[in-house]
Amino acid sequence: MREISYRQALNEALNEELVRDQTVFIAGEDVAIYGGAYGVTADLWKKYGDERVKDTPISESAIVGVGLGAALTGMRPVVEIMYIDFIPLALEQINNQAAKIRYMFGGKCTVPLTIRTEGGAGRTLGAHHSQSLESWLIHIPGLKVVMPATPYDAKGLLKSSIRDNNPVVFIEHKMLYNSKGPVPEEEYLIPIGQADIKRQGRDVTVITYSRMVLFSLQAAATLEKEGVSVEVVDLRTLLPMDIDTIVASVRKTHRVLIVEEDCKTGGTGAEIGMLIMEHAFDELDAPVKRLAGADVPMPKSPVLEKLAIPDPERICQAIREVLQ
């Protein structure tokens, strides 16, 4: 199978959906002429023109608001928030409007809105451009939150997000755009809400998502040489969370490490850990452990930035502790 980058996979997903459905359009800062801050919308403006690929003013609230309004009137917009760090500026539209409208109108309308954004550390962009704010978003009922780790998942899940009749926040990772992986030529979809076991193992389950999937797979390969068999569960979707896959894996290994790049306190890992307590307490042979980002504003220093988020070596160490 051919290998393409995460960026190209996303671009293909957008392109295919623009072709497939005339109600799909793209809007965001620099998405048209410039092709997107990370190049995901490259060449789409040339192909589809101003009507379907729109540059917007620098106003996150307006970007999501426009998308929401268009969605309510029958369009299927894909709006881009350049950095997840700016999502708070649009939270009124996301939280109080987009996520609630379908409920508050008794299901009489749908909100087929996709909000693409990107997060994570790794480019030493400092505290305002390196955050992982997914845990804020999974606290909003009515939203779906998707965080793919591989080009294959990115393409299949973006297409599903665009076709979904509910608001989806689709969070990419800035360090994954250049990563490559197999993606079939033919069309496919990946359902929202399904985790994927990226590596089968017997001794311990690592539950993770986004860039940390790659780090966890590296750690698993290292530990294999020590005779430790690590199962890596890639959640892919954080909301709704695939508790069935999590529980099945816990039943198999009885030990869990949760790895997240986001800071630990009040994070997604806390939610995963409690779900395990609620659904698989009797299966645990050791306390669930979390390895997460430090509870600090992301440092600008490259040295400190590395220390502020998990890396493969510390994932190995944490797995050894879970197995102790």
Binding site: E283, D285, Q324
Partner: peptide
């Protein structure tokens, strides 16, 4: 551990008789 406790219950084992090998003597 919860798993060990469940197993002990199923097998009718008095947990006070078991020596734990986990961290701080946790029975696994």
């Amino acid at each position: 551990s919860p798993r060990a406790r469940k197993l002990a219950l199923e097998k009718g084992v008095e947990i006070s008789a078991i020596t734990g090998s986990g961290p701080e003597g946790r029975i696994e």
